[in-house]
Amino acid sequence: MGYEPMNMLGVIQSQKTAELLLDLKVNCIICSPRIASVDTATAISEVQEAADCLGADCMPRYVEVKKMLDLEVEPVLQQPRKNSMETLIGKSGSLYGFDDGILTELWNQSKKAWRSLLHELSIDSETERNVVVVGHPAVHIALIAHCLNLTVEWMGSFHLDAGSVSVIDFPDGPSGRGVIRCINYTAHLGRWSIPVTRATTNDEEF
Score class of each variant (00 low, 15 high):
residue 46 E to V: 15
residue 48 Q to D: 08
residue 49 E to A: 14
residue 49 E to N: 11
residue 52 D to H: 13
residue 53 C to W: 04
residue 53 C to Q: 14
residue 53 C to T: 15
residue 54 L to C: 14
residue 54 L to P: 02
residue 55 G to E: 13
residue 56 A to H: 08
residue 57 D to I: 15
residue 58 C to I: 15
residue 58 C to V: 15
residue 59 M to Q: 15
residue 59 M to W: 07
residue 59 M to L: 14
residue 59 M to N: 14
residue 60 P to I: 10
residue 62 Y to K: 14
residue 62 Y to S: 13
residue 63 V to K: 02
residue 64 E to Q: 14
residue 64 E to Y: 03
residue 64 E to G: 02
residue 65 V to K: 03
residue 66 K to A: 09
residue 68 M to N: 04
residue 69 L to K: 12
residue 70 D to N: 12
residue 70 D to W: 07
residue 73 V to N: 05
residue 73 V to R: 03
residue 73 V to A: 03
residue 75 P to Y: 08
residue 75 P to T: 05
residue 75 P to W: 05
residue 76 V to N: 06
residue 76 V to E: 11
residue 78 Q to L: 11
residue 78 Q to C: 13
residue 79 Q to A: 10
residue 79 Q to E: 06
residue 80 P to C: 05
residue 80 P to K: 04
residue 80 P to Q: 04
residue 81 R to V: 14
residue 82 K to Y: 08
residue 83 N to A: 06
residue 85 M to Q: 11
residue 86 E to D: 03
residue 87 T to C: 02
residue 87 T to H: 00
residue 88 L to Q: 11
residue 88 L to E: 10
residue 89 I to P: 00
residue 89 I to H: 02
residue 91 K to A: 14
residue 91 K to R: 15
residue 92 S to L: 12
residue 93 G to A: 11
residue 94 S to Y: 06
residue 95 L to M: 14
residue 97 G to Y: 06
residue 98 F to T: 00
residue 100 D to F: 06
residue 103 L to H: 07
residue 104 T to I: 09
residue 105 E to W: 01
residue 110 S to L: 04
residue 112 K to P: 05
residue 114 W to K: 11
residue 116 S to D: 13
residue 117 L to G: 04
residue 117 L to E: 04
residue 118 L to T: 08
residue 119 H to F: 13
residue 121 L to T: 03
residue 121 L to C: 07
residue 121 L to N: 03
residue 124 D to K: 08
residue 124 D to T: 15
residue 125 S to K: 11
residue 125 S to D: 09
residue 125 S to R: 11
residue 128 E to I: 12
residue 128 E to T: 14
residue 129 R to A: 05
residue 132 V to C: 08
residue 134 V to E: 01
residue 135 G to M: 01
residue 135 G to K: 00
residue 137 P to V: 09
residue 138 A to N: 02
residue 139 V to E: 04
residue 139 V to L: 09
residue 140 H to C: 14
residue 142 A to M: 06
residue 144 I to R: 13
residue 145 A to G: 05
residue 146 H to M: 10
residue 148 L to G: 01
residue 150 L to W: 11
residue 152 V to H: 10
residue 152 V to Q: 14
